[in-house]
Design a protein around this nucleic acid. Structure first.
Lengths: 237, 237
DNA sequence: TTACAGAATTGGTATTACCATCGGTCCTTC
DNA sequence: GAAGGACCGATGGTAATACCAATTCTGTAA
């Protein structure tokens, strides 16, 4: 096979699109190991240098993972890393942190409406299971909270949303961690949050988009008021 | 200088962080040309292969731009290209194209509300100027339409929003172009769109967030009905 | 001063070689 | 027969060298 059939200016990019095609066409699925570099070089009729250039491009985007001696595999769609450019922007302009929280909120509201519309039995079961787990004092609250929102993301049935959310979420977490925001975990808050989560879960189970949207909005407003931006204004320092 | 001082497992990543440091410290600013690959290899005491690996990582993230014979430069924070991972997702699941349009819509609604709240004199003047230009048959409609939305993005005063929008927009355009969607440019549509734009512009000028939000929502619904998804369902082919 | 030709610089590709790590095979041992 | 370990091949990572293609710089001539 000759790689020249693909468009692009340099060979590395052409190799990247060739690999991308393999993934898009389903020849290799997440978790699969793709052909060795030397073999790819032979198949695509380019040098190993160019193959590595193409692979490195995809690895930098988090689509592939290589391990020395073990091969190169297609990464799971989850666990994508954040957008470095976005992180840089937020870093340069601290005020935009509030915007990021804001935008994430409207995306979550959108997602929960979709989830109420499209959620299947498995999704609903998963969500209700998480709600039940929250009554268990043994479980870790923070993890359950994240899982709850991830379950909604999955129930929304939109890979695009899941991707955008993961990008925003990781950037958000990175920034919050970097600036040492304290997320005071008061026990009385858990009760309120658990109650809000229950309302959201019920709306999804009932397939009531309007109610779900509303409940999520209320929840996020509550969280914003009590946690992240408590005492912080929107002004750049 | 020895690059071993930086953390990381492979040399390419260490080179990348070294370059990142140069940018972060202000040694090189956007637009500047950084040292040639051979020189970097010498300075960092690694081979040119490793230098290229590091540079390619940053280039894949859109932070650097190389031109054969011209050198490698730090990219401007604006003009970032889209998210390849997002494009790949949409490519794999054509149905998510509708989601992308949907999400862009709610982001635009959010932005126009912010614009109505925060727009300053310059922003409003710019927007009204574009509205005026739309009456000029000499001007290119498509360009003006894009500029109009960009002007609103700027007026929103959120760099985060501008970044996310540019990511989504470029992916959207890439997909639409790739699948050869026809954007029928009927003259009678121009009149309707111009009218909708005027309403949006007025709401921003009046600093009326509610009205702006509403007008933008109406506009995007109209566009969706008449253009992009006309005759296309949410089913993968 | 301007215009152009040529040299030097720079990123892109190919080839070759070797190292570090992982995976599976095969042999030993109990 | 099963368990453990040594071994060897495969694979990704790094290096050195050479050459190509495109750009940029430079010096000369008009």
């Amino acid at each position: 096979m000759n790689v020249q059939t693909t468009s692009g200016t340099n060979l590395g990019d052409q190799v990247a699109t060739a690999i991308l095609r393999m993934i898009a066409s389903g020849d290799v699925t997440p978790g699969d190991r793709l052909p060795a570099e030397r073999r790819l070089a032979e198949q695509l009729n380019v040098s190993r240098v160019s193959v590595r250039a193409g692979l490195q491009k995809l690895k930098a985007q988090g689509m592939l993972v290589s391990v020395r001696g073990g091969g190169t595999r297609v990464a799971e769609p989850d666990g994508r890393n954040g957008d470095p450019a976005l992180a840089a922007l937020v870093e340069m302009d601290r005020g935009s942190l509030a915007d990021l929280v804001d935008i994430r909120a409207i995306l979550e509201v959108w997602a929960v409406r979709r989830a109420a519309e499209r959620a299947n039995e498995d999704d609903i079961e998963r969500i209700n299971q998480l709600i039940a787990d929250m009554s268990d004092p043994e479980q870790d609250r923070a993890t359950l909270d994240v899982d709850f929102h991830l379950a909604i993301a999955k129930a929304s049935g939109s890979v695009v949303y899941r991707h955008l959310l993961s990008v925003i979420r990781s950037t958000l977490e990175e920034m919050l961690r970097f600036h040492r925001f304290e997320l005071f975990d008061k026990p009385e808050h858990d009760v309120a949050i658990a109650e809000q989560h229950k309302i959201i879960a019920k709306a999804i189970s009932d397939h009531d988009p309007r109610a779900a949207e509303n409940a999520m909005y209320q929840h996020l407003e509550w969280v914003r008021a009590h946690y992240i931006l408590a005492g912080h204004t929107n002004q750049p320092e």
